[in-house]
Design a protein around this nucleic acid. Sequence first.
DNA 1: GCATTATTAGAATTTAAATTCTAATATTCC
DNA 2: GGAATATTAGAATTTAAATTCTAATAATGC
Lengths: 193, 193
Amino acid sequence: MARPASIDQSALIDAATLVAARVGAAGVSIAAVSKAAGVPTGSIYHRVASRDALLAEVWLAANGRFQQMVLPLLSEMANEAGAIECALATPRFARSDHAAASVLSAHRKEEFIRPHAPDEYRQRASEQAAAMREAVANAASRLFPADTRGKEKLAVAVVGIPLGAVRVFLPQAIPPQEIDDTIAAAVRAALRT
Amino acid sequence: MARPASIDQSALIDAATLVAARVGAAGVSIAAVSKAAGVPTGSIYHRVASRDALLAEVWLAANGRFQQMVLPLLSEMANEAGAIECALATPRFARSDHAAASVLSAHRKEEFIRPHAPDEYRQRASEQAAAMREAVANAASRLFPADTRGKEKLAVAVVGIPLGAVRVFLPQAIPPQEIDDTIAAAVRAALRT
DNA sequence: GCATTATTAGAATTTAAATTCTAATATTCC
DNA sequence: GGAATATTAGAATTTAAATTCTAATAATGC
């Protein structure tokens, strides 16, 4: 019926994610994405409404894939071993989804969900954040029923420490397999404090 | 002889750092800084040559203060206790210099040292990075003479883990005192892997 | 008190980048 | 093979923000 598109929306978002991983949100200009994706600037607006929408999609997609990996582990988490397994999802994610992990480990939501981003995106972003907070809180109440600071401790252990560890390598390199042992040991010790 | 300036360059950089900590590099517009510093936009150009120069100054100042704290500890580091002390410099820094720590923990050099930044700044930034790399490498060769991956392990332990831990709290909150024990335990365990 | 001079103040201009628009192009179905 | 139509392509326009500029201001030293 009509000429087929050379790339679809998700490929466009992937291209933008790659740019973001290398040069940050500010570097995600329409010109840069157009070059990275190999499409003219005009075509980008057939896929997304605006640059702000594209940036938001980048964040939501990266964070969404990360949470897809981590949330089930958080909700099943019942003991120290489960927490360590959850922490190790981060280096695994950094290897399987390098660009998304680079975005998440070295950037902040606010850079991608900008003041002028359509409300729809702000909405989805805060839903994601809430889901994560809730999952951590629930897991903490199981693992540390007595500890009022359990939530913070768990957040540091299963998110902060692993993310900090992979950030040493991203985006230039892929985190080496060896750091998994380091992360596991660090997380175990952190949980026991 | 003449009217005195209402703020000097370093106060301007501090104001820009505060903005950057809250909304990231992209949010550091001349208008936003002018508002935060309480000076008209034009006055900003009496202190710095351009927005790119201002962004670079923000990064160099934040990173400079962090390194001032950490580099001496790295060069004196002779054992595990020294490494832990060094790691704890990060939460201490996050409490004493909240905005700078927020910038460093959730942003990347490339966002502040931009493609069009004057060469002078690119120069200073890579000197800083080199100094850090070298200090870590030297410390690693002392603590882990045999281990070829000692450098990476030490970087993860004394920089990655503490930065990841404080990032859970920044920029909204000040990292609570309690996480120091968590960081210390995590770093000790990481070093022993 | 007055001349001097860097600074304030913010309006005007410039610049860079986002967005829109028009024409040409390909593919599919009939 | 030809009509239909979404896409490509990139030039033209718009917009937002950086930068520059001019006049008014306020300390200081004489």
